[in-house]
Structure formats: C-alpha cells, structure tokens
Write a protein that binds this DNA or RNA. Structure first.
Lengths: 253, 253
DNA sequence: AATCCTTATTTGTATGACAATTCGGCATGA
DNA sequence: TCATGCCGAATTGTCATACAAATAAGGATT
C-alpha cells in the first residue's frame, strides 16, 4: 500500500475533494483509520510525504493541519507527527466517519450505529415533542410527505434522512447535532446493504407517521415509544443480514 | 514582519497554542462561535486576514484549513470563505466546544450538557456493565480509588473525570467517544461555578461507588439506575448555585 | 557520573510567483 | 426581452525557496 508515486489510495471519492491537499488528507486519513499507522506511531515527515505524493510542502502541511484539526494527529518540532489515541479522534466528523466506514466490517459498523441510535433517537423524538418550534414541525412534516410520495427505492432515502435530521434539529440541543452525520451515514449506506426501503414500506411509513403525530401534539412519551419502535423494526431488517457478534476489543491481562 | 501586532482577540488562551496559525484559528474560531460572523456570512479573504493579524498567507491558510476541517468554514475560489450552517459545526471537537463555551451563557450551556448527560450516561453505564473488559474495569476502579483518596476540591475533579471517561471507554462503542470531550468540559468547568466537589462528598462518593459495583458485577439495570441517580443529584447541586456571569479568561499580548 | 553545550533534524513562518476556478458583466444573437 | 457565450478580474490553490525556532541526541567538559 505504499507505491512510490502518486496517491496510495484515493478511495471513497465522496464529497468531491478536487483540491490536492484534500486528496492527501483523505489518503492519509484513510491510512490512519485503516490501521496502517496505529495510534502512537510516528508518521513520515513532511519531506517524505512530499516525495510520496509528489506535492509541495505547503500542500502537505495543509493536509496535515486538516488531520490535526480532526484529532487524528499531533505535530511536534523535531519529532514529527504522531497518531493520536483513538479517543481523541473526531469520529463524528463527516470525513473521519467516512474513512472509518471504509475500513470496517459493515455489520460491525451498523451494530455500533444501531446501538447509539436506539439510545438517542427515542430521546431526540421526545425532546422534539417538547421543544419543537412550529417551523421545525413543518420541516418534519414536509419531509414525511415527501417520503410518502416517493416511490420505494433509492429516492425515498433522501426524504427519510431529511425526516430524521429535521427531528434532530427540533430537539433544539446543539450538543446532539453531531449525530446528524451518523444518522445520515447510517440511513444512506444501510440502503446499500439492506433493502429497507424496498422491503417494507407498509411498515415504514406508518411508523414514521407515528413519530410525526406524537411530536405534533407534543406527546413526549408517545414520541419516544414510536421512535423506539421504528428502530427495533429497522433492527429486524438488518438482522436478515448475517450478524456477527460484537468484537470484544482485546487486550490481555 | 509585523511583530507584536497580534490579533483583535486572543482570548481564552487555553491548551497552549503556541503556534501562530493555532492562535489565528482560535481567534477566528472564537469570532465565529460568538456570532461576529454568522452562518452564511462571507469572511474576510486571505489577504485581509494577513493584514489584520500581520501574518503571512501561509499561516493564515493553515488556520483557515483548521477551521474548515472542524466544519466551521468552506472556501471556494473567487468567493472566499463562508461560514457553514451550525449543524455542520463539529461542536464536540475540543477547540470548538471551548470556543462555544467562551461565548455562551453558562447556565444555558450546562442545561444542554445535563440534558445530554442524562440521556447518555445511564446507557453508557449499562453498556459498560455488559461490555467492559477486566482491564477497563480496573481502570474504572483505580479512578474511583483516587477519587476517594483525594481531598475534596480541585484535585478531586481529575479522578472524577477519569472515572467517567473510563466508564465511557468501557462501553466499547467508538461512536460514543466524542462525548468524552463534553463530559470532561462539563466536569472541569462545573467546578469553576459550583462547588460540587466541596459541597457533598458524602453523597458523591457513594453514588460513584454504586455505579462501579453495578458495572463490576455486570448488572446493566443497576448501573443505569445508579448513573441516573448521580446525574439528578448533580442537577440539584447546579441548581443551588447562583450563576455569576462567566469571566472571560484574558490573555494579553 | 552528571552537567552543559553543540549540532542536526523537523516543524513553523515568510515571500513571491503562477495556476485554476469561477463570478459578474458585456457582447452577441434569437 | 431574454438567452447564450465569452472575457476579465478576484480569490483561492499550488509551488519553490529561504530562514527561524524548537528540541532530541550526542559529545565535551567537569
């Protein structure tokens, strides 16, 4: 994975980073997330990166700054750049999450996602029921309508995402907003592996409608319950794909 | 070039950004978070920043790249840099959260934090009870012991933070790890405003012990309940404290 | 053995130049 | 009037080079 010339791996060209420093950041980021450089390891220095990618030092440094800002790196004079411990990584950053997904077993990833979603989304729905503004309710409603109108399939994913993001926004707590990225990634990519939107629209729409109605009439408990129900439902759809047990992270003792 | 001509506002010189591009990023970041530049607004261009801070374009660009990586900005040729909508901000980034706190009403901030903590920490405790490794349990235990040993006061905050972070790590779900930053910020700064650690160590220690024991014997429900109890307890402590306006930490230069 | 100093390596900052992108207006034409 | 396409100017993107600053490592001195 380390050819002498241009870009080892410009994988997952999502979100179109046409800029060179962006491409470098993606490439290096992918290598870190995929374990080529483990936490604590010292990365090649700037001059090395210049040679590896055939880019100028300015560009390399901008890429490094980007990764540093996302918590993946830390640079020190005379030492070089060292990979930060995982708990400092900004995993809910759009790019970092993408790199993470690219180097992970999908089932394992969706297991983590669903775990978090089951914790958060019911409470998000409850908060939305309590705190939503009329405008936010309208946004949720519109997303729902578009969802219902859409034919099952790829296109129905978009309003589905919009629905959940609108719900999140309606919870009116900034500290929860980073999860928008996760939800978006989950719904969008789940489509690639499952056929949620094809399989059971008959289940799907009413469940969402249940959330909407509960939020509309400000019933937190009902909203919570409806959201949880949707999630467990999604779980079953996922479960059709062979599930692998959670990997116990190991260390020994 | 222009020595001594540093910045409109190099406030909250936290975490020692000795580097110039870091200082610029902090300064600009603070301005964005405090609303000087609202989402959608177009920032001064690179040449302007150079003049404003008396720094080279290289440095300015690295600062801008940092902010871009944190989701605060987006640069386009011929347009300049535009502030991104809030939902794209990486609010759980260490720096962004600090800037956010610096420009916010403390009560409001702690209200948001507690809301999220009450949602997450009980579930984190429950997950920890189920998924912890022996090593992770030991880390939690050690933090607890240090907490008990410490005299109430500032020093007891450190092991307290360690306790909660160890718990978080023991939940073994990467997607939750960004909240470590939030928990850390909450506990550390809460000390500045409340006297949690002075006021009721008699309450405090047993509550933590309850969580520890539940996690130790793998009882998820008990862990959840204990964690929630600690949180509602903390709520009361906060409520007692008359809020004084936060004093911006000042750095001069 | 301990301390201090020198040196080498690596990141940090500055400068000037040119490339690439694209917005905005202008000209042209239907 | 409106649409289309071209041109020029503003701004970010990339490059090359030079020097400054920090500091780890090893050697010199005591």
């Amino acid at each position: 994975m380390n050819p002498g010339k241009v870009s080892p791996k410009v994988t997952s060209g999502r979100s179109a980073g046409s800029n060179l420093h962006r491409k470098l950041a993606q490439s290096i980021g992918n290598q870190i997330l995929s374990g080529v450089y483990a936490p604590g390891a010292i990365l090649p220095n700037e001059a090395d990166w210049c040679r590896i990618y055939g880019a100028s030092r300015t560009t390399v440094r901008e890429a490094v700054k980007t990764l540093t800002a996302k918590g993946l790196l830390k640079s020190r004079t005379k030492i070089g750049s060292r990979v930060e411990p995982r708990e400092n990584w900004n995993i809910l950053d759009r790019d970092v999450l993408a790199w993470h997904m690219a180097s992970m077993n999908p089932q394992e990833f969706f297991a983590s996602v669903q775990e978090v979603r089951k914790i958060l989304e019911p409470e998000i729905a409850a908060l939305a029921a309590l705190n939503r503004t009329p405008q936010q309710l309208r946004a949720i409603t519109e997303a729902f309508e578009d969802m219902r109108k859409a034919r099952p399939g790829r296109s129905s994913v978009v309003p589905d995402v919009r629905f959940h993001l609108a719900l999140l926004a309606a919870a009116n707590n900034v500290l929860l907003s980073p999860f928008g990225i996760m939800i978006e990634a989950a719904l969008t990519n789940m489509f690639e592996f499952t056929s949620t939107h094809n399989a059971e629209p008959d289940m799907f729409i009413p469940k969402h409608e249940g959330i909407l109605k509960a939020v509309a009439r400000g019933n937190a408990n009902a909203a919570r319950k409806a959201a949880l129900s949707l999630l467990t439902d999604t779980d079953q759809t996922i479960a059709q794909v062979p599930i692998k047990a959670r990997k116990a992270r190991k260390a020994k003792s």
